[in-house]
Design a protein around this nucleic acid. Structure first.
Lengths: 140, 140
DNA sequence: TCTTGATCTAGAGTTTACTCAAGGATGGAT
DNA sequence: ATCCATCCTTGAGTAAACTCTAGATCAAGA
């Protein structure tokens, strides 16, 4: 009754946008739970693995290192008794990400101030009033 | 009349939070315009270099590579005739940063959905309805 | 003058996250 | 029976951004 179309590494690669190299490397890093093999030794994936890799991508994009994703993946493999730990890990991650985002937004604001500074200088032809910490340097 | 307190690499290191190694390495990468030497061959910095490194840090925090900062620093060294190019470079950077921020915010949102999912599961004791692309995986 | 701490250069080493290469097995199509 | 694409493993290579080491020089204080 349960008959998923077989998903080999090439198919998962296409579906996920990761190279087959990367998928195998993720596996060596403990980031690919639940991979089976067929009679010929080939890795067989389920449709869920596509979603899993997508989730991994979100973690990565929010700045999680492979080392911490390893911890998360290990918890997933321990089953539902690890739910509290997974929740804690993700919450801690969320806190860090929010802090990082705030810092990056602040940095962007400063860069934009510099843009305004250059813009004014260029359109008025004269150097605007000093803006602190915008990294001016005399020519030498 | 113009008498700045001498700033050697150790002082700049303290003031900027970068190691002396990093400051020297930045120089080899063309990221330190306007560094002079004293009679004994030691690097002498001006107070402006502190602001410069702070600005570099903002660029870095917003994800600019050292390679692109090189380009920016080279423009700075060309003097005011490079103003339009500097402005263009920073504006292009701003555009990229905003796009990156949007993607990261979206990723964070998905991670937060997963947190909610785990939270509900944990507090109700039963697995909530599927949320698409949250990377579930069967144990095996 | 001697010592100590900061500085210098050149070059090697580290970390993270892939990315590729070599050589070999497998399996469906002709 | 033979091709060819796709898969396998092991291990080496790459890129970015530092980070450290070794051996030498310099400057200021005891």
């Amino acid at each position: 009754m349960r008959k998923a179309p077989e998903l080999y590494i090439g198919g998962l690669s296409e579906a996920s946008g990761h190279s087959v190299h990367t998928i195998r490397w993720y596996e060596t890093q403990g980031l690919m739970p639940g991979v089976t093999r067929d009679a010929g030794g080939r890795r067989v994936y389920e449709a869920e693995h596509i979603g899993w890799l997508e989730f991994i991508d979100q973690l990565k994009r929010t700045g999680m290192s492979v080392a911490e994703m390893q911890v998360y993946a290990a918890l997933v493999m321990k089953g539902r008794k690890s739910l509290p730990d997974r929740l804690e890990l993700l919450k801690a991650h969320r806190t860090r990400v929010k802090a990082e985002l705030a810092k990056t937004r602040a940095a962007l604001k400063l860069v934009e101030q510099k843009i305004d500074y250059y813009d004014t200088w260029l359109t008025t032809g004269k150097r605007p009033a000093e803006v602190p910490s915008l990294g001016r340097l005399r020519k030498r």
